[in-house]
């Protein structure tokens, strides 16, 4: 029976896995695998585990629960070991690194920010700002949109302007929020968002972080929608 791993914690972590379950149908019972001062929260790995909603939710639920109770290293979804003994060996072999990582994320949580454009308002501003772009737009409008090639060339210029605009937006967000974070990680654009940034925020800095988020949200509201998710397990700061 293979072993599914959710998180690594210190032996002193107040985690109680008894009675809790994780991935699989029916959900597998959680247990602990200990090596010296490190503990892995694991369960049996179900046959044919896939990245389906049910198991993604189960993984996240377990990791969230462990991380909210104390310092934890969240595993990437879908990590499977041959058996518990292999987990124990891995903990022992990498103990130094895991202790160091636990120190890094101690007393802090991840907040993931995603910025989305309010497209129409953004494009309007870009046209107002750039007289050339605006004239081009008016000319194409007058010709019922212009030829395919005209629209493609114009659209390409708009896309470049959008890209520059998004970069400036991301810089602004970083400048405002980075001072509140222990670490920052800029992620790929997903789900159509213009900026995707994770912040590792210490518990005592959370109020200041959230206050700055509120201010930013107000300042940028005309053209940008900010969503901030957290506190989350520190996924972005342990890999």
């Amino acid at each position: 029976m293979t072993t599914y791993i959710y998180a690594v914690v210190h032996a002193g972590h107040p985690v109680t896995v008894e009675g809790s379950t994780g991935v699989g149908a029916p959900p597998a019972a959680l247990r602990e695998v200990r090596s010296d001062d490190l503990v892995a929260v694991v369960s049996d790995a179900p046959e044919g585990l896939r990245a389906k909603r049910r198991d993604l939710e189960a993984h996240q639920r377990v990791v969230e629960s462990v991380a909210s109770a104390g310092t934890a290293l969240p595993m990437r979804f879908g990590t499977v070991a041959p058996d518990d003994e292999a987990v124990r060996t891995a903990l022992a072999d990498r103990a130094e690194r895991y202790r160091e990582l636990l120190g890094t994320v101690d007393g802090a949580a991840e907040f993931n920010l995603k910025a989305a454009d309010r497209e129409e308002a953004m494009l309007r501003e870009l046209l107002i700002r750039d007289p050339d772009l605006r004239e081009l737009n008016e000319a194409l409008r007058a010709r019922g949109g212009g030829s395919h090639d005209d629209r493609l060339a114009f659209g390409g210029r708009v896309a470049a302007a959008v890209d520059t605009w998004r970069s400036a937006n991301a810089e602004r967000i970083l400048a405002e929020l980075r001072p509140h974070a222990v670490r920052t990680r800029v992620g790929p654009a997903v789900d159509g968002c213009a900026a995707n940034i994770s912040f590792l925020v210490a518990t005592n800095a959370r109020d200041g972080f959230e206050e700055s988020v509120r201010r930013l949200r107000g300042d940028l509201s005309a053209h940008t929608e900010l969503a901030v998710y957290g506190p989350l397990p520190p996924y972005s700061f342990v890999d």
Binding site: A7, L56, F77, T79, Y235
Partner: peptide, 8 residues
């Protein structure tokens, strides 16, 4: 993407 692409 945090759960799938990041984490230990």
């Amino acid at each position: 993407e945090l759960i799938l692409d990041r984490g230990l």
